Amino acid sequence: MKRTLPLIFTLFALSTAQADEIQVAVAANFTGPMQVISALFERDTGHKASLAFGATGKFYAQISNGAPFEVLLAADDETPARLVKEGNAVAGTPFTYAIGTLVLWSTDPKLVDNKGEILKKGGFKHLSIANPKAAPYGAAAMQTMSKLGIVDKLKPLFVQGENISQTHQFVSTGAAELGFVAYSQVIKNGQIGSGSGWIVPGSFYDPIRQDAVILAKGKDKPAAVALMNYLKGDKAKAVIKSFGYELR
């Protein structure tokens, strides 16, 4: 037993030395799945992902101004490409980890019909929407309303969230009767878990391809590469699908 103890401590020291921690900026819509995935990632690799959640547009501004993030999980595919072009992310690392789905949702189980006709009929005072300039799901909501020809009619009713998490919060707390949120925020057992909702047809808005990228500050971090590989693996994919995302 005395002979094995030094070996155990040596192996523990080696594994601890190899483990790393990375700063990850995560699009707000991906909060739920990333919390699950990061726990699995730490358990399986020893690396730790320190997560910050928010709007992709705001993360872009922060990263451009030197924020210490090493990996970005964006809510679009344009921001990672732009960061690569500007030298703030590593070329060749962006990939689509999820494709998002937009939902019109209310906590009232009878308010939203399954075709979204409530938007045309009215009868509500507030409609929550994420900032379309910073949040791709907000941009998708605007495209949806534009396609339906009701933007001008509904604009006075907008309650704008800084990101999709705040947008969901406005609806869930009753600050708005309904709002455009990410399917991942309301899905349970493969369907809308509570309240009522309309899953917006994908033809109503540009595909929400969500890309991950290693940022310049994570260029030489093995844990950054490990996380990107983990997101491409079966365990992460199973979690992503369970939250209602599509995979490329």
Rank of each mutant, 00 (worst) to 15 (best):
S184V: 13
S196G: 03
L227M: 07
F95C: 00
T144Q: 04
A67V: 15
F180N: 00
A52C: 08
F59Q: 11
L227C: 09
P222Y: 01
D206F: 02
E21F: 09
I99A: 08
P207C: 01
Q35H: 12
A176M: 00
T31G: 15
Q169W: 15
I164G: 03
E177C: 09
V200K: 05
K153F: 02
D113N: 14
I8R: 10
T10H: 09
V239G: 08
F204N: 00
L154A: 10
A89H: 03
Q191E: 14
D76V: 13
V159S: 13
G116W: 06
A55Y: 04
V26E: 15
G174C: 06
D113P: 05
S50R: 11
N189A: 12
R209A: 09
A49Q: 00
V159N: 12
A67K: 14
F59R: 14
Y60G: 04
S128Q: 09
G244S: 12
D152S: 06
K133G: 12
K85W: 04
K153E: 07
A175Y: 10
F69R: 07
Q18M: 08
A19W: 07
F95E: 04
P94Y: 01
T79G: 14
I164S: 13
K219M: 05
G193R: 10
K153Y: 06
K221V: 07
L51C: 01
I99T: 04
G138Q: 06
P80Y: 07
V200H: 00
A141S: 09
S146F: 09
K110L: 08
I208F: 01
R209G: 01
I8M: 11
T10F: 07
L231W: 10
H126E: 14
N229F: 00
N114K: 15
S15V: 00
Q191M: 14
A176K: 02
K235M: 02
L51R: 07
K121H: 05
G202L: 03
L227W: 12
I99C: 04
V112M: 01
A182H: 04
K133F: 13
